[in-house]
Design a protein around this nucleic acid. Structure first.
Lengths: 242, 242
DNA sequence: TCGCTATACTGGTATAGACCACTGAACCAC
DNA sequence: GTGGTTCAGTGGTCTATACCAGTATAGCGA
């Protein structure tokens, strides 16, 4: 029941109550929830108060309102995918998998052409190349080749990239936080090298991802090419109009 | 001024009016906008109506509300690199290519399981299946299989989908505008059927895309599976932090 | 059987009034 | 000056009521 003397607003108490009904499974996706008028009568509150609770739950994506029909429990929300900028580690955690990494190569090199162009690197400058086999639940998922370029990038050569997320190290030790990224996603057949490292059959498909990451001032600092096992990984994207 | 007889709701008219003040630069970021009570007196509307306009603009990130102080014009947003929701036609035009389509199948059918689940279709209801070979510059690019379900969907059977965009027809004739979509992008090898239609070699990779599209009320109305030629197409996404 | 209409719902919009907690400034006593 | 009180103004919450357009259905009439 709702309590007028409780410090929390009535509409907020009602929200929690409705949320609980859905979380407990008493109301299932697609079910109609009581109408605004029913709720106002049942809990002795005004229609506008019931309305505010329903409206906010609808904005949160928990309910779905249909004029003339009623208010319904929405289908379970799928996690945000593409629009949020995350690295492999955070990505895997969000999918409920334990992320891992095996460093294959970590070196200061002359940048390849694509990286030089993407990161706008002047001639004679070197970059750090970090190649890692990415694991989830102990299984190889992707081969990640990162090209990094910023002031003092050579300090990265002594970091431990097997037990730490790249973005975590960049953020905590170098005050370099990714603000924006552009990525291109394509399909391809695996190369011989990828075939061996990812333990997939010859001629198996892979998802290729090329990503350029920018800091808060719009400076590109990371260009990463990844090859994901197609049988273990899909990109998820949420699009919106306008 | 606001017009009670105008078909658009008063709070909506007020929103547009306030938006205009901000867009024109009359009100700058950080400025305080008139209080709810001032607006209700000035435009001869109730406080709740003014409140709804202010609340929605705050949700959109255009205004910032501070209890006890007032409502202010928000600082311009930094992010907003959201992926835009478009169909194949608009997508190809944006890439500077001439889009085309060849209808392979257009029929009223029992929905397959995946479509039934995605579109929340009750038993015994039929849907429209539209299978098209999509072209760009005369060359086959993708095989698109759309499942459509909404009130009056059977009228789609007489539409011309070779010379008109699906979203254009839905929007203009059925007042159905896509507001949100969730898509999953993966890689795979082409099937025999795709191989023939897309004119690619056996064992060639394809990009697979499964998309569920929702209208402004959050109702799913389209579930589309597409297979893109990997040698002709890449998805591009812009990500932002936070 | 088919199509229409009346009816009872729904959420959306709108009004008018009320009290609350909080902010900030003016004021006052020390 | 400093610390308190008062007070007007703000957004937040809440009640009660009203009408609208859209939806679903039961029942009637041809």
């Amino acid at each position: 029941m709702l309590d007028k003397n409780y410090p929390l607003p009535l509409y907020f108490q009602l929200k929690e109550l409705l949320r609980e009904k859905i979380a407990s499974g008493e109301w299932k996706p697609g079910d109609m929830v009581p109408s605004e008028r029913e709720l106002s009568e049942q809990y002795h509150i005004s229609r506008m108060t019931a309305r505010q609770a329903l409206r906010e739950l609808a904005i949160e994506g928990i309910l779905r309102r249909e004029p003339g029909r009623g208010t319904f429990v929405a289908e379970p929300k799928i996690e945000h995918g593409l629009t949020r900028l995350t690295g492999f580690t955070e990505d895997m955690k969000a999918r409920g998998l334990k992320p891992g990494a095996k460093v294959i190569r970590l070196a200061l090199i002359e940048p390849p052409v694509l990286a030089r162009r993407a990161l706008q690197i002047p001639p004679d400058k070197k970059i750090v190349l970090l190649e890692r086999l990415r694991l989830a639940g102990g299984e190889p998922i992707a081969l990640e080749t990162s090209h990094l370029y910023f002031n003092g990038v050579e300090n990265l050569l002594t970091e431990d990239f097997e037990n730490n997320s790249l973005y975590q190290i960049l953020s905590e030790k170098y005050h370099l936080t990714p603000a924006r990224a552009v990525q291109k996603i394509g399909a391809d057949l695996c190369s011989h090298r990828e075939r061996e490292l990812l333990q997939i059959p010859e001629g198996a498909p892979v998802l290729r991802n090329k990503r350029v990451t920018y800091d808060a001032w719009g400076r590109p600092f990371e260009y990463t090419e990844s090859a994901y096992r197609a049988d273990r990984y899909v990109f998820q994207a949420e699009l919106s109009a306008g």
